[in-house]
């Protein structure tokens, strides 16, 4: 995860404008060009490795999409659909890679979302690795007594052996977490944050550029033949 100089709110606006922009094109050339530009950004931010990882995840969806659309319509439409999915995916990949859930949740709080919601967003991230470790332990404990939870279709019938113990532990864990939160003043009014997100001139610039690009795109679309 990279931190960036921009406020998550301006980046979010940028990402949405980028998506709109990508949706406007129905030809593969501008889409491929946008994807190229995005790839350059990825490389500039040194996110190449995680991008490749991301692509292997998205790859399956893109491929399915491409095949379905190609069959339903024609090859070119399929290429356009695949490219667009890839480009939009990358826009949000960039957004999420440069925005930690904590900063996002702080910024969302500023825009008026309720604290419980933004708290869930920032806190749940901390427990993902904890629960992954527990899930591994449970899987090992069950495998040790002959229940195969090892991947493969047979896993389907043995999921309760993994999910059951995990759920019961997780709910106990949730109660412990709730107690710990109360013991540190969760729920008191007048909470004051040490680092407040600030909308600075760079953020206004991002918003400005986004809007300019959007206008240019719209102009091209409607006034050029």
């Amino acid at each position: 995860m990279k931190s960036s100089a921009f406020d998550p709110r301006s980046k979010l606006i940028g990402a949405f404008v980028g998506t709109l922009f990508l949706v406007m094109f129905t030809h593969w050339v501008p889409l491929a060009a946008s994807l190229g530009a995005l790839a350059v950004m990825v490389l500039l931010l040194h996110l190449g490795r995680s991008w490749i990882h991301f692509l292997t995840n998205l790859g399956f969806a893109v491929l399915t999409f491409f095949v379905i659309v190609s069959l339903a319509f024609d090859l070119l439409t399929g290429v356009v659909a695949g490219l667009r999915l890839l480009a939009i995916g990358t826009v949000f990949f960039l957004f999420f890679q440069t925005t930690s859930p904590e900063r996002l949740s702080n910024a969302l709080l500023k825009t008026g979302l309720p604290y419980p919601f933004t708290f869930v967003l920032s806190a749940s991230m901390q427990f993902v690795p904890v629960l992954i470790r527990r899930a591994r332990n449970i899987r090992d404990a069950q495998r040790a007594r002959g229940i195969p939870i090892e991947g493969g279709p047979r896993t389907l019938f043995h999921l309760p052996a993994l999910v059951g113990p995990l759920l019961v532990q997780a709910f106990k864990f949730a109660d412990e977490l709730a107690e710990a939160m109360e013991a540190r003043g969760f729920g008191i009014s007048g909470r004051r944050f040490r680092f407040e997100p600030r909308f600075r001139w760079v953020d206004w610039m991002v918003v400005g550029i986004s809007l300019a690009v959007l206008t240019a795109g719209l102009a091209m679309k409607f006034f050029l033949p």
């Binding site: 419980p116 708290f119 869930v120 806190a123 749940s124 991230m125 901390q126 427990f127 993902v128 904890v130 629960l131 997780a170 709910f171 864990f173 949730a174 109660d175 977490l177 709730a178 939160m181 969760f186």
Partner: peptide, 9 residues
Amino acid sequence: IARAVILVA
């Protein structure tokens, strides 16, 4: 809220 946190996780 704590349960929501854990369900997400």
